[in-house]
Design a protein around this nucleic acid. Structure first.
Length: 533
RNA sequence: GUCCCUAUCGUCUAGAGGCCUAGGACACCAGGUUUUCAUCCUGGUAACCGGGGUUCGAAUCCCCGUGGGGAUGCCA
């Protein structure tokens, strides 16, 4: 059977990395299995779903290379089908309208099936007894059983559960007398009859549970007496998530559901829904959450986690993709930087971890540098030009000169937005790090030596890195400064910053005229600084 | 409250009872590289949440705590 998975976001804001990570894992799984990756927009919340949100989602997916198969499926277009499905369930006795005390419109509730014929996901889990609090009457009616347990402090804790949770239920009063047997009355309960019993002591029943094997978490189960019938159509006739989601998974013939593990509890309900709609229950894989710096799951409120922001900050799509893939998954060996092809080949859901992971910005930063470093020179130059397209100095720069600068800086660039710091190569109007400057020139002999440098730089000869290096050595000699001690002062003097490529190469690239002028300017700035101080 | 999931360096992780004196990566620190560093190389600090079992042997299996997360909606 061909694998068909889907990414089903609701477009109610920006896409954050937790969200897109789910998309990535779905995509990876589909590509690994040579199956289909489908996109479904769950836009039933008309109030909050916006066109803009859909556009940004699509943009982010395109940027990351998450290509989907088949047409985009819009959930809102299927409202009628969803409601019809619920009505069919009513006619088959699988769902019912919830009677409202005030006579207002009834929502439709799905009944956790009393007798799920042909469903192998339910099994007996042994006899069970619940001690009930005598002050709260036990009620048995179509919508379920309600009663109260006793808390550790002796207070009643009210509970409600579906009828199906209490097969072979026997209710006992305070004296231990049997007062009610559900099995005997179940038909009349379905038909609306209500039973209320005061002063009860215990409920005995056959516990049953619904279970499934999660591809990531292993076998999971939930006792039916812990479940309630669920509303699938609101009183305003709009379908609820559970219904819409399952109907559409059926419509799209989904075989594997890969989603965040906040949906584990929903799975038990969805299993019954799939069965009621006569469709084989898909395989499930529940991904651990990604948590933010505070250790909390990412939400729409985590402003720094929007996918689009990473793009704007200058991160490469491949680096983000790679870093996100490593959250909760690893290939099993020490490899971390993986090509798309390698990821596809190696990805399996069985290797996904089950514990939440914190996204590490440092690691992403480093990963980005790795990707930048392996780029071809041509690509890097073009990428840098694109990133600097908004600066006048880069746009007007000589192409060949720009290329030389970019190539010189490539190995030390970890984030393309940091290319903004290359300004000093192109313009004389750059910031001076005065603190660094004064610090570098804290010895008078440095000032003396550097004062001699313009003359040496002006001597005849090709202005190569060998030439600039020799000039600096000569300048050092004039004031008996140790070899190399002048590198950093010269760098700051000529570029305004203490960080950059090798100073000899930098001067050579800058050219004789600029190098000389800048060093003179720096000396002037220094002199003024001393006077003012 | 109840139910469920989860737990290895600061972070992401490897780990399927003996290969673990717990490996890698990022970050951090130190040294080296033209005394720049947000490059590169070398080295270092740093973890099995706690307590009980099971076993000849436990990071690994079981139980009980504790921390974290989720669910308990006519939200998705």
């Amino acid at each position: 059977m061909d694998v068909r998975v889907r990414f089903a976001p609701s477009p109610t804001g920006q896409v954050h990395i937790g969200n897109i990570r789910t998309a990535i894992f779905n995509w990876l799984y589909a590509r690994h299995c040579k199956g289909k990756f489908l996109l479904r927009i769950e836009d039933t919340d008309l109030e909050r779903s916006t066109k803009e949100a859909i556009d940004t989602l699509l943009e982010c997916m395109a940027w990351l290379g998450l290509d989907y198969d088949e047409e985009i499926f819009y959930q809102s277009s299927r409202r009628d089908t969803h409601v019809k499905a619920a009505e069919t369930m009513i006619s088959k006795g699988m769902a019912y309208k919830v009677p409202m005390a005030d006579g207002s419109a009834s929502p439709i509730a799905f009944r956790i099936p009393w007798e799920p014929k042909g469903l192998s996901a339910v099994r007996d889990a042994g006899d069970a007894v619940i001690e009930v609090h005598p002050d709260i009457p036990v009620k048995i009616r179509n919508a379920g059983v309600s009663f109260a347990q006793t808390s550790s402090k002796g207070k009643p804790m009210e509970r409600e559960a579906c009828l199906a949770g209490f097969r072979q239920m026997k209710l006992y009063d305070a004296n231990g007398n049997l007062v009610f047997e559900l099995e005997k009355e179940i038909e009349s309960v379905f038909n609306g009859k209500e039973f209320v019993f005061e002063k009860c002591s215990s409920i005995k029943f056959l516990r049953r549970e619904v279970f499934y094997k999660d591809m990531i978490k292993g076998e999971l189960s939930k006792p039916l007496d812990g479940m309630k019938d669920l509303i699938i159509v609101r009183s305003d006739s709009s379908p609820v998530f559970h219904l819409a989601n399952v109907c559409d998974d059926i419509e799209q013939k989904i075989t594997h559901i890969v989603r965040g593990d906040d949906h584990v509890e929903n799975t038990y309900r969805h299993i019954f829904l799939f069965h009621a709609l006569d469709y084989p229950v898909p395989e499930y894989a529940h991904l651990p959450m990604i948590v933010n710096q505070a250790g909390k799951p990412y939400s729409k409120r985590d402003g720094d986690a929007f996918v689009g922001d990473f793009r704007e900050k200058g991160y490469l799509a491949d680096a983000l993709f790679n870093a996100l893939t490593l959250l909760g998954w690893s290939p099993g060996d020490d490899r971390e930087k993986l090509s798309r092809q390698e990821m596809i080949e190696l990805f399996t859901l069985e290797r996904v971890k089950s514990a939440p992971a914190q996204f590490d910005l440092n690691k992403l930063f480093n990963m980005n540098g790795l990707y930048l470093g392996e780029m071809s020179q041509d690509k890097f130059v073009a990428y840098a030009a694109e990133a600097l397209a908004k600066t006048d100095w880069a746009v007007t720069a000589d192409k060949e000169y720009f290329r030389k600068v970019a190539v010189l800086m490539q190995s030390r660039t970890k984030l393309i937005s940091h290319a903004l710091a290359w300004k000093y190569f192109f313009s004389d109007d750059y910031e001076y790090d005065m603190k660094a400057l004064t610090k570098c020139f804290n010895k008078p002999e440095y000032i003396k030596a550097v004062s001699a440098l313009p003359d040496f730089l002006s001597e005849a000869g090709d202005f190569t890195e060998q030439f600039t290096e020799a000039a600096i050595r000569k300048a050092e000699a004039t004031a008996s400064v140790d070899q190399g001690k002048l590198n950093q002062p010269v760098r700051v003097a000529s570029t305004g910053t203490s960080v950059g490529a090798g100073v000899y190469e930098t001067l050579a690239l800058l050219g004789r005229e600029k190098s000389v002028a800048r060093i003179r300017k720096a000396l002037t700035l220094l002199a003024e600084g001393t006077k003012n101080a």
